[in-house]
Simulated assay, not measured.
Amino acid sequence: MPARECSRTACSRPAVSTLTYVYEDSTAVLGPLSRTSEPHAYDLCADHAQRLTAPQGWELIRVPGSSGASDDLLALADAVRPRPAVPEPVPAAEPSPRRHLHVIRSSND
């Protein structure tokens, strides 16, 4: 199985890091090369990973580790996303009597 290459255009160096984005939180996560290629992640060579900057207004999280140490950086990206509060269960309402619509004619008819 050939080594994965850097995702940057015209770069054929071997990838050593994987970049994922959490668009909802404006966060980019750069970590060790994932074991499998993910369709929504970018594999980067050492040079491109080192020079990477986040878009203006975004946070860049660099996760240290050796190549292949992380199985799924998408799970890491989900881990930094704040969890919504769990709403309390609403008690079941008693069924209301079925109501029917009635036509009411105006006095002009």
Rank of each mutant, 00 (worst) to 15 (best):
S17M: 10
A54E: 10
T27I: 13
A85C: 04
P2C: 06
E38W: 09
A92K: 02
P87A: 07
A85R: 15
A85E: 12
I104F: 02
L44I: 14
T36H: 11
L60C: 09
R99D: 07
V80M: 10
D47M: 14
Y21P: 01
L52Y: 13
L73E: 11
V80C: 08
P82V: 08
C45A: 12
A77V: 06
G68Q: 09
V29D: 09
A75R: 05
A75M: 04
C6M: 11
R62S: 10
P55M: 06
P89G: 03
R98F: 03
P32I: 14
R99H: 06
V103T: 07
I104Y: 00
S17I: 05
L76R: 15
E5F: 06
R81S: 12
R13V: 01
R51I: 11
D25G: 11
A93N: 05
G57L: 07
D72S: 09
A69T: 15
P95N: 09
S12L: 15
G31I: 02
A54Y: 11
A79I: 03
R4N: 05
D43P: 00
A49M: 07
H100Q: 00
P2D: 13
V22D: 12
L74N: 14
R62C: 00
S107I: 01
R99A: 12
P2M: 11
L60T: 06
T20H: 14
A79W: 04
L52I: 00
T36Y: 00
D72K: 02
D43C: 06
L33S: 04
R8W: 06
E5I: 13
P2N: 04
M1V: 08
H48D: 15
T18V: 10
T18G: 10
P64Y: 14
P89Q: 00
R83D: 14
A41H: 05
H102Q: 14
H100P: 00
R8P: 15
S96F: 00
P84S: 07
S107D: 04
D47L: 07
V29P: 08
R4L: 04
D71R: 13
P89S: 03
P89V: 01
L74H: 08
D25I: 00
